[in-house]
Amino acid sequence: MTTVLQLPAVAGTHVTIRGLHKSFAGVPLYQEFNLDIPRGKIISIFGPNGCGKSTLINMISGLTAIDSGEILFDGKSLKETDIGYVFQNYRDALFPWMSAWDNIAYPLKRRGLGADKVKARVRELADLFEIKFNLGLFPYELSGGQQQTVCIMRALATKPEILFLDEPFSALDFEMTLFIRAKLQEANLLAGVTMMIVSHDLEDAVFLADRILLLTRRPTRVAEFMHFDMPRPRAPEAVSAPEFIQTKSAALQIFQREMRS
């Protein structure tokens, strides 16, 4: 089994994954999987259905147990690391017995932060996300896009080093998708938080990404870990820029090659 001692991480790496194994009901999904996730970048994960995109971020974030291997954050374990996680299903992720404000404040309060600091942090987030609706409302009184915005604010509240997002746009309308795309870029630029986004939409995946992680069919390997260095912030029109189209079609080619193999 590979460890980080035998295969050191490249410079600027945030998360190192070495010798990762994971099977479901005896069927191997990941075998001897190694990956370096760069610090402060937005990484989109794209791949065929059932290749374990969500499983990958769930294993890194500790929601799914791994069979063997090691996952380190700057050499630290997950326990010593602050993470954030945004779920696809925002309705089931927010706490409906708390107001939107209390949802965002909850992880801060549980960390024992003083009331003033909690208030200041929530205000900071509300400014960053240009919140115009009443945060005193309960989640079920908000629109889907507003609920997902609250989820992202809550996940960012504790200033995590890394934010995981599992198909965060799949239940949102286009307008809201554009808005959240823009805000995620801002949050990334502002706080330097590493982001790993699982996506089933290639355009979403490329638009936000510094790196696009293309996965193969199971047993899952890295098909390609592409770079996409288009300058930020990227406006919605970026999708029609030549470099965007080029990267997207290159990714599509790799994806189709993997589907055929």
Binding site: G62, I83, G84, D92, A93, P107, R110
Partner: peptide, 15 residues
């Protein structure tokens, strides 16, 4: 109980 809510709390590092 909704598993997602429990998972959300786990990722927040709640004891």
């Amino acid at each position: 109980a909704k598993k997602t809510r429990v998972m959300a709390a786990i990722t927040m590092g709640i004891p």
